[in-house]
Amino acid sequence: MAYSDKVLDHYSNPRNVGSLDKNSSEVGTGLVGAPECGDVMKLQIKVNPQTNVIEDAKFKTFGCGSAIASSSLATEWVKGKTVDEALQIKNTEIVKELSLPPVKIHCSVLAEDAIRAAIHDWKKKQDVAKPATVAAQ
């Protein structure tokens, strides 16, 4: 099976590889996996607390080229979006952008899961952080 040019581009030149401080209240971390292929993907977002805009995103994926490309693309797409906008990203859009074949659709699913998990983690932190901030003031 041949990878598309876009997959190859993201694979050989992945954007935003790395990690953010997972203990920061502005950072949300999503760790997800696909049992079908044994892939595991970590995606982190840094959100501006005033605007809810995702200012930075990092990922680290252990898996096939399509999984790496999907998560690389996901970090590119979420950057600059608000968390609510980022929640609208669908795996099918990733499939389309990267021309993923049917057997690799689960890689795009993984990327969507990772975005949603990261946002969920961040939201959870905000819920916890709010009363604490009030108490501190």
């Binding site: 997800v32 996996g33 659709i105 699913v109 969507e112 949603r116 998990a117």
Partner: peptide, 27 residues
């Protein structure tokens, strides 16, 4: 995975990972 993702998206909920978090962390 795909079915669960679509369901979670439609419901606006967080998907329950089919693989438990502790195992993912370890992997």
């Amino acid at each position: 995975s795909k079915a669960a993702t679509e369901k979670a998206r439609a419901a606006g909920e967080i998907k329950k990972q089919v693989v438990p978090p502790d195992l993912l962390e370890e992997v």
